[in-house]
């Protein structure tokens, strides 16, 4: 397993002009780094809806790279979105799931996909994405594997699905809103309109 901050730092250092959508734990950690105008920290959220939100944005901005960093608990709430996205197949979208096996922000309860909740093996989100028809899907659990993902994350035509096996963060890890939600939405819309007109 790797650390969530390592995954996010890797993306932040190489994202270039990519739009990056984060939520819950990924948004909390993302806000500790270099935040740009092209970041959308989806807090407050409707848990489970980040993939759909990012897909819509990617469809509206087909020439822009869009990277969404979802949690495993969030992904479980909307597995159907994997099928929706593969049907639309936006080539500019990368969906990452950071899988720590638990609902971290509510007090570290294991999800139903975690091995402790099951009589069989834990669930593989990357295998689910393969079955849902994604162009590519992979699982990453080491730094070497993370480094090998650079082309997929930032360059190759997608949509791509990457499951990052990460360690849970310790302690009280509730996310904080990065500011008034309506103002952040309007700012992103204005940027989106400007890009459409350019």
């Amino acid at each position: 397993m790797i650390e969530l901050p390592e995954v996010l730092k890797f993306i932040q250092q190489r994202r270039g002009e990519s739009f990056v959508f984060t939520t819950m734990g990924s948004a909390r950690e993302w806000s500790k780094g270099d935040v740009q105008d092209r970041d959308f920290m989806y807090i407050p959220s409707s848990m489970g809806q980040l993939p759909a939100l990012a897909m819509g944005f990617a469809m509206a901005q087909p020439t822009q790279r869009v990277i969404a960093v979802n949690g495993d608990g969030c992904m479980l709430m909307n597995l159907g979105s994997l099928v929706t996205i593969s049907a639309q197949s936006p080539q500019n979208l990368v969906l990452c799931v950071v899988n720590n096996g638990e609902y971290e922000v509510t007090g570290h309860q294991p999800t139903v996909a975690h091995s402790s909740r099951r009589t069989s093996n834990s669930i593989s989100f990357s295998e689910i994405a393969k079955g849902a028809g994604w162009r590519s899907s992979t699982s990453v659990s080491t730094i070497a594997e993370l480094t090998a993902c650079e082309e997929i994350l930032f360059h190759n035509n997608g949509p791509h699905f990457i499951e990052f096996m990460v360690k849970p963060m310790a302690g009280d890890v509730a996310p904080r809103s990065p500011g008034p939600a309506p103002a952040r939405a309007r700012a992103l819309r204005e940027l989106g309109l400007a890009l459409q007109q350019s």
Partner: peptide
């Protein structure tokens, strides 16, 4: 998903 997808589309212009 529909509302979130529409929200993303709107955010993108």
């Amino acid at each position: 998903e529909a509302w979130a997808t529409a929200a993303g589309l709107w955010l993108g212009g």
